[in-house]
Amino acid sequence: MTDRSAAAAGADAGGKLLERLLDGEPAALAKAITVIENAGARAAQVLAGIQSRLGHALVVGVTGPPGAGKSTLVSALVGELRRRGKSLGILAVDPSSPLSGGAILGDRIRMAEHACDPEVFVRSLASRGHVGGLSSAAARVVDLMDAAGKDVVIVETVGAGQSDVEVAQLADVTVVVCAPGLGDEIQAIKAGILEIADVLVVNKADLPNAERTVAQLEGMLSLRDPGTATVPVIATTATEGHGVAELSDAVEGRAETLGGSARAGKRLERIRQDIADSAAELLRRQLNDSDDDGLRALCRSVQRGELDPEGAARRYLADYMGNKA
C-alpha cells in the first residue's frame, strides 16, 4: 500500500470520511456509498451528517423497458447537461442474480464518452437484498451524491414493475423511455408507467413506427383527468443526439415548476417511506428468525384455516408488538 492511500484510509478510520464527502471528493463519496450499501457501522453517522446538506441536487429518474436505449439516452443527456455546466452523479441499478446473489453491472458500457470526466460520477448498484428494499438503498445513495455537491443526480433502472414506482418515489422528475415498434411496451405503459411519468420519451425516433408511438402516447395522456400536470412526449435519437436538448429543457423546466418547497415535501414523504420500508424489513427478519410459541400457534391456525395470513399478522402485531394494527 502506498503512503498516500494508507493516509487516506487512516483518515477514514478517524471519521474524516464525512468531511471529505461534503468536500465532494470522489473517493470519499465512493467509500460512503459502500458504507451505506452495506449498512455498515458508520452508516448512521454518515447519514446523520449529510442531512443538513441535502436538497441541492435535482434528482432525475430514468426508467423504461429493456431495449429502449436507456443507457445511451442517459449518456446523451449527461453530455447535454455537462454542456450546460452541471456536475452529475449517476446511479445505475441492475438486478442481482437470484441464484448466486452476484450481478453483472454493464451500464458503464454506454458511458464511454464520459469515462474521464471528473464532473461525472457513476456508481453501479446491484439490487441485492437491501435493508428496506432497493428504493431505500438507492435513495440514500442519491442523498450522498446530493451531499457531495452534484447538481443533477440521475437514477437509471431497468423498467420491470416495482422498481419503476420506486424510482418515481425518489426522483423529482421521472422520465419514462420507450422505443417504437414494440407493442408490449405500450401495453406496459398503459398498465401503470404512465402515472409515474413526468416526461415521456420515445427513443430511437429514427425507426419507422416512431411517429405512431408518439401519437399513441399522446392519445393515452389526453384520456387522463383534466387538471393533471402536462406530460410532454419527446422523440429522441440518442445515438445521434437528436431531441436531447429538448429533453434537458423538459427536465429542468419540470424542476422549476415543481419548486423548492414541493421537492422538500417530497423528501419528507420519502423519509417516511424509508422508515416504513426499514420497519417492514426489520419485522420480516424478526419473524423469520423467531422461535416463538405464539408465532408457531398462529402458523397452525392459518394451516387449519382458522385465520388467513393477514389476520394472523394483525394478531401477531397486536399481541406481541403492542401495535394497534
Binding site: P26, A27, L29, A30, K31, I33, T34, S96, S97, L99, S100, G101, G102, A103, I104, L105, G106, R108, I109, A112, A115, C116, P118, F121, V122, R123, S124, A126, R128
Partner: peptide, 28 residues
C-alpha cells in the same frame, strides 16, 4: 464471477488507463 456471487462491473474494451482508475475509485 457473477455465478460465484460477486458483483462485476463490466466495461467496453479500449478503456484508457485514467478511465480505469476513475472507475475503480467510483465503483469502490
Amino acid at each position: 464471477l457473477r455465478d460465484a456471487g460477486m458483483e462485476v462491473i463490466y466495461t467496453a474494451p479500449w478503456q484508457k488507463i485514467e478511465a480505469v482508475v476513475k472507475l475503480a475509485v467510483e465503483e469502490d
